[in-house]
Structure formats: C-alpha cells, structure tokens
Design a protein around this nucleic acid. Structure first.
Lengths: 133, 133
DNA sequence: TATAATAACAGTAATAATTACTATTATTTT
DNA sequence: AAAATAATAGTAATTATTACTGTTATTATA
C-alpha cells in the first residue's frame, strides 16, 4: 500500500521548530536557524515543506503588505499584531469573533467561511524603548 | 520654490484608473491595461507610482497569502472578501468596527491603531456558477 | 516666454523571494 | 533484503519588485 507521503527528519524538524516559538518566522529565518543543527539542510526543502504543511492545514502562512510571508504553527483561529516600527508579528490574546463571519455572511451574496484580522500599531517592546514612529 | 514632487500623466492615469474600478488590480494588470492608451508606459513607472501613492496614503496596498499585492484607491476603512475559488478581491459593504481596535488596545500592552480584516469564502460569481471548492 | 533646475520617465539591469529540476538518499512497503 | 518511490541537496530558473541611467517633461523663476 502507498501512503503517498513519507516522513522526513527535515519536515519534522521544521514543524517542531515552528511549534516551539511564539514569533512567526519567515522561511529564511527557519532555514538559517535549523541549518545550525542540520548543516546541509537546503532552503528549497524548507520552502517545499512549508508549502506542504500549509496545504495540509498543519501550519498557516501569514501575509503582510510589503513583507515576506511568515509562518505560524498555531492553526487555531486567532489574531495578530503587526508592529509598524520593528515589523514584529505577535499573537493577540483576544477571542476570535465568530459573529463577524455571521454578519459578513448576511451582508454578502456569496459565502463567507472565516476572516483574518491583523492589528497594526506599536509592539510592547518598541513602546518600552520609547520609540515613536 | 520647490514642491519636491511634479505631476505626471502616468501617475494621474494610474490613480484615475484605480479610482474607476471596484476590483483591486495588481501592478501587472494596471500596467497591461494602461499600456493600451499609453503604449510606451513602463512597468517600473507603475511600480514606482504605486509605491509613491501608497507611501503618501493616496491608495492602499493589499496583501494576501500566496498572492501578489493588489491596490485599492478607496482609502476609507473597509473590509474585503477574498474568493478562495477564483482569487477575486471584492469590497464588503459592512461598517468598519472601531470597537475592535479599542478592545484589542485594552488587551495589548503596546499600541493598537487600526486593523485590517480579510474575509475568506466563495464570491458571488463563483456561487452563481455552482462552483465547489 | 525662455531658461534652468530637477522630478519623472522608458528601458534595461539587478535583486529578492520562491519554485522547478535532477541525480542521489532515505523511508516505507512487500 | 529488495523494490518502489517520496524527499533531499544543490543548482538553475522564474516571478515580482527595485535600482540604475541617460533622456524627457514639468515647474519655478528670470
């Protein structure tokens, strides 16, 4: 019998790495960090596995204007904060508002299944450091 | 005296074009469409002006996972629907919820200034055509 | 109105992010 | 243990975007 997919140390390292962090690293960041323990890891392998994991719903790809994609191993619905000073992407501990999908669905002739919200502002760290935009 | 910026037919054509449509075209789409009336328009000029207009707040750059950027001449706060079947980006006629920013600000140690929400689903057209994901 | 200053342009080259290709290696099935 | 094949490393190619350069267009001022 054929499962169609085989495990690999590389893929498992990638998902383990992602699950172990709260920031939302880019493909490049994942690559350079993992390369320390897997010296002949290839950047293409990282991209291929991120796509595969994203396509199978095991991780999420996050997209922001003018920034390269970030990846998140937490696939439960939640919101993000993007710092316009330093570019950091953080989780926001605010309950996902399912009623927004309902409301949107009632106003829209097509089908609404979910929403993705990114808050913009200045992150805790940059505020502490007294940064102004 | 020096204003620092000079008008150009190209830039005015770009913003006029964007204001005249409700979809949210990509740089490439803007370029190919405008090239018909301005045959020696350059793609670099389109990108340069989209950046300039975006930086000065005259238009907005929209970013979606796995898609190239789209541009919107409507800078008032509003929501979008992304069709996961055909990739279309439409406006959603639903009032911008300022209370979300308040709520987020109360829960977050940093500063929240705004939010950007994209609803995902199947657009009116694809629904009409009986498309299933 | 003509001239000078310079922003913007077209066209092209360069860069950055991502994907595709290929021979080899690792995993899984039999 | 052998056969089948998914995944890899390394490299090449592609795509989206930005940078460069000599020329053109716009604007300020004489």
């Amino acid at each position: 019998m054929n499962t169609g997919t085989k495990r690999s140390h590389q893929r498992e390292a990638i998902i383990l790495y992602l699950k172990g962090r709260k920031d939302h690293p880019t493909a490049e960041k994942i690559y350079t960090d993992l390369k320390e323990e897997m010296p002949n890891l290839s950047l293409g392998t990282v991209y291929r596995n991120l796509s595969l994991l994203s396509d199978t719903g095991q991780i999420n790809k996050l997209s922001f204007a003018g920034k390269t994609d970030h990846f998140d191993a937490d696939t439960s619905p939640h919101y993000h904060v993007l710092c316009e000073k330093c570019g950091a992407v953080e989780d926001l501990n605010m309950p996902y508002d399912y009623s927004m999908d309902e409301n949107a669905g009632n106003l829209y002739e097509g089908i609404i299944t979910s929403h993705s919200t990114v808050f913009t502002g200045i992150c805790t760290n940059c505020c502490r450091n007294g940064e102004i935009i």
